[in-house]
């Protein structure tokens, strides 16, 4: 039990600390690296809760794809982050107010749990215990059966995202020299090489 607690505090501390560093570090590349660290540690927390599928998805999707892509964007684009941050103090009062309101609501909601536990009903379909079925298996059992409609709908949404990106950004460039391999292979000695007789001391 103590080992579990130790690991929990290890992961939790690093997650919170690196989360803080994401917004605190001056260098955007370092911020993204801290973000990746936070993701990996959150994955560790998921693993300890028995949600191994979520943990793996977090590592593969967020760390493997999203964060690395983001890192590339940060390195490729010359975004002036210092300028972006200039408004920070200016928006602090409004942002702080909204944050306080949300915090209050959160406390209220948690308070409601404490005051009236009868309100919180157990979910309609109980989650099978990890001893009976791993949760990857449990997800697989419902994803294409019970939730197949949602799965298809999500697929359509991704299709829209793809079409949208193409519609808004794809441009036909004119005057670009493209490599045409079949054209290159079709070249023969006759079309590619021309033999000239070069007069002495005159050049071509």
């Amino acid at each position: 039990m103590t080992v579990t607690a130790a690991f929990f505090y290890l992961f939790a501390t690093i997650t919170v600390a690196s989360g803080f560093m994401v917004i605190a570090s001056r260098n955007p590349v370092q911020a993204v690296l801290f973000l990746i660290l936070a993701f990996v540690n959150a994955a560790g927390l998921f693993l300890m809760m028995g949600a191994e599928f979520l943990a793996m998805i977090l590592v593969i999707v967020y760390v493997g794809a999203v964060a690395v892509l983001f890192l590339f964007v940060v390195m490729m684009l010359d975004v002036d982050f210092a300028e972006l941050r200039q408004g920070f103090l200016q928006y602090l009062p409004v942002g702080g107010l909204i944050g306080a309101v949300f915090l209050l609501e959160l406390i209220l909601v948690i308070g409601a749990y404490v005051v009236d536990p009868g309100l919180v009903r157990s979910p309609a379909v109980a989650i099978p215990s990890p001893q009976v079925m791993t949760n990857t298996e449990a997800l697989g059992q419902v994803l294409y059966t019970r939730y197949f409609y949602f799965f298809q709908a999500a697929g359509l949404i991704l299709l829209v995202a793809m079409i949208g990106a193409i519609v808004l950004t794809l441009r036909e460039r004119v005057g670009v020299r493209r490599q045409d391999i079949s054209k290159q292979n079709a070249r023969t000695q006759e079309t590619a090489v021309e033999v000239r007789k070069v007069p002495f001391r005159q050049g071509v």
Partner: peptide, 22 residues
């Protein structure tokens, strides 16, 4: 869930066609 997914499909397409004259 069905409500949210339908709404996102509707909205995402709308965002793109709003900016159609890019």
């Amino acid at each position: 869930i069905a409500l949210y997914l339908g709404l996102e499909l509707l909205s995402l397409s709308s965002y793109v066609i709003a900016a159609f004259d890019r």
